[in-house]
């Protein structure tokens, strides 16, 4: 027992710890969204921590996807949609008209509910965005991007011998991982996921969830999910939306074991009538 103290001091090496407060990657302040006359989101304040997974949960129509789509200006594509407030990515306002939206979407990638690979080869799916953004020129560089992206998405071993085959020929779970590989090919800082597993079976879902957990070492992830178990499993922070209002946000453990707001409690325990 004499060297107990010694052991403790030598083990005091700094390690990644979920308890340590993390840097804020995205800071949203008083964000409101209007579809024409109708207001869909009301004064949302939410900080998204770097290198963590934040889940947005809530019943259909609560505004969670609307909020997610603000983070890479996807709402710009909807006619009559207006976004008010401030959203800062690493301190820079992204709602500004002066911002290059194409550049923003390279930094803030997105994965959708239904896997949507391009009708091209697996390799071309990965190289498409780096080519547009001029991230590589030589074939060797592109090959490196393909391998690195597919490896990070946990798909490399399954597809390395058929990179020229169409991406649409893969299984649903593989297609979704291909879409994740495609999103990370341009080295984004943030990955937005809008119900990425709702079209997948439980095994494919588990693989995506495992992947999400690995990806948060390098990226900041925001995920919209209808599965509360999924939010509980994959995220460190959870935000609950209801009727366009951010009702409660906090550590995932706290939200699912002892929520503060009665509306959160009613929703996650299945008491909404």
């Amino acid at each position: 027992m004499a060297n107990l103290a010694e052991t403790q001091t030598t083990e005091g090496v700094p390690v990644a710890n979920d308890d340590i407060p993390q840097a804020i990657r995205i800071a949203a302040e008083r964000v409101s969204v209007f579809y024409g006359e109708k207001q869909a989101l009301f004064d949302v304040d939410l900080d998204i921590a770097s290198h963590s997974v934040t889940s947005l949960i809530g019943p259909s129509g609560c505004g969670k996807s609307t909020f997610l789509r603000c983070l890479n200006r996807m709402n710009d594509t909807i006619e009559g949609c207006r976004v008010a407030g401030n959203i800062k990515l690493d301190g820079v306002e992204i709602l500004s008209d002066a911002l290059d939206v194409v550049q923003l979407r390279a930094r803030v990638g997105m994965v959708f509910q239904k896997p949507n690979p391009f009708p091209k080869s697996i390799a071309d799916n990965i190289t498409y965005a780096p080519r547009i953004h001029g991230l590589a020129t030589t074939k060797a560089d592109f090959d490196a991007i393909v391998e690195r992206s597919l490896r990070r998405a946990g798909l490399w071993d399954e597809v390395k011998d058929r990179l020229d085959e169409p991406g649409t020929g893969l299984s649903g779970g593989q297609q979704q991982r291909l879409c994740i590989a495609r999103a990370i090919a341009v080295q984004p800082e943030v990955i937005l996921m809008d119900e990425p597993c709702s079209a997948l079976d439980p095994i494919a879902t588990a693989r995506i969830e495992e992947l999400i957990d690995e990806l948060r070492q390098e990226y900041t992830i925001v995920i919209v999910t209808h599965s509360m178990q999924q939010a509980a499993r994959v995220s460190q922070k959870t935000a609950f939306f209801h009727l366009g209002i951010l009702v409660e946000e906090g550590e995932t453990e706290q939200i699912f074991t002892a929520p503060r707001d009665e509306r959160t409690q009613d929703y996650i325990t299945g008491r909404f009538g």
Binding site: M228, Q229, A232, F256, T257, A258, P259, T264, Q265, I268, T269
Partner: peptide
């Protein structure tokens, strides 16, 4: 049932 929050407690 995978109880949550007060149900889990």
């Amino acid at each position: 049932r995978q109880p949550m929050a007060d149900d889990l407690r």
